[in-house]
Design a protein around this nucleic acid. Structure first.
Length: 337
RNA sequence: AUACGAUAACGAUUGU
């Protein structure tokens, strides 16, 4: 069982989910007696596959055989949260006999990821009231909640606590702070934090870029993108989306086209988020034919991609095209919202 | 001294 758990967990850590799933089947087929550690792995597996049914079955089995413990329950909470079943996550959490900082953090993070920032911050104060000490994972989740809720006051208090070393300050904490200030509209403070960080990674740079873009400072966003490349920081698809948005907000078709070339060179053009953003960008810059071409070449289109072209056409006065796209969207099986 | 739980950044629409 040790060997099976080790190999399954190893596959999961590398996101080889199907292989891990197959190994779990093999493990059962070999008649190996599973234990609670294996269940934790399998709950993770279900979470990664978003396989609610299998997860529920495993959960029922765990309950029936009384294989529960703090870690198993934590994994179950995390699983439900990952599948978007926040009330099931809460139910499991509420029934836990023991709690620790990790399961509290799991709930706090789950809430902030589902856009329940207020609940996340309530959970944090409950956790503190129960005498648990937050760590950097907890603070990260709380900062995200502050950003979502524009809770600048509390976010600033957390920042103060971080300066006073309430937890270790890693790239996650730094990025969360940069992002929190930016989402609260405090781009100056966001940049101040960014400048003082010792560790910055792709997410940190993307946060400051999207922060500038969101707050209407497209030029600055683009400058940071250039600096990022000069410093040879890895650029990923999230970075690209933010930069293209920056180009759109200030109507910079030439720079956007450069970025588009970069996208194609680095094989990122098949990504749906990037495609949709490019469609929006070209419409914004009144380059309808480019927008259309990007949309046509996208391997997958969802309601957001179609809305980008439809609203773009509407804005450009291309009413009949807008209606044709609506029809094309429905014919492709995408439902309008 | 061998296996298990939690963390950050991205897209459309909401009239100037």
């Amino acid at each position: 069982i040790v060997t099976w758990t080790a190999i399954i967990d190893g596959y999961l850590k590398f996101n080889l989910v199907d292989e891990a799933f197959k190994l779990f089947h093999d493990c059962i087929k070999h008649g190996v007696q599973v234990n609670s550690r294996m269940f934790v792995c399998v709950m993770n597996l279900c979470g990664k596959r978003l396989d609610l049914e299998l997860g529920k079955q495993i959960h029922a089995y765990v309950l029936k055989r009384n294989w529960r413990n703090l870690i198993v329950d934590s994994a179950v909470v995390h699983f439900y949260a990952k599948c978007g079943k926040i009330s099931s996550a809460f139910r499991t959490f509420d029934r836990m006999a023991d709690r620790d900082v990790i399961c509290w953090t799991t709930m706090i993070t789950a809430c902030s990821q589902q856009g329940l920032g207020h609940e996340a911050l309530l959970m944090l104060s409950q956790m503190l009231g129960d005498g648990f000490f937050p760590n950097e994972y907890t603070i990260c989740g709380a900062l995200k909640a502050c950003g979502e809720n524009k809770a600048l006051k509390f976010g600033t208090q957390l920042h103060g606590a971080i300066v006073k070393k309430i937890c270790k300050s890693d790239a996650f904490i730094g990025t969360s702070l940069v992002d929190m200030y930016a989402k609260c509209g405090e781009i100056v403070n966001s940049k101040k934090v960014f400048d003082r960080l010792r560790i910055r990674n792709t997410a940190t740079w993307t946060s400051i870029i999207s922060g500038y873009a969101r707050n209407g400072f497209g030029e600055e966003a683009i400058n940071f993108f250039r600096l990022m490349k000069r410093k040879k920081v890895h650029v990923n698809k999230l970075t690209i989306v933010s930069v293209v948005m920056a180009c759109g907000t200030i109507n910079a078709p030439l720079i956007g086209r450069e970025v588009h070339a970069h996208i194609i060179k680095s094989f990122m053009h098949t990504n749906m988020y990037i495609g949709s953003t490019l469609v929006w960008f070209y419409c914004k810059c009144k380059e309808y034919s480019h927008a259309f071409k990007v949309l046509q070449l996208m391997p997958l289109r969802d309601v957001v991609s179609w809305t980008a072209i439809i609203s773009g056409c509407a804005r450009l006065g291309l009413e009949s095209e807008a209606l044709e796209f609506l029809q094309g969207m429905v014919e492709e099986g995408v439902l309008p919202n």
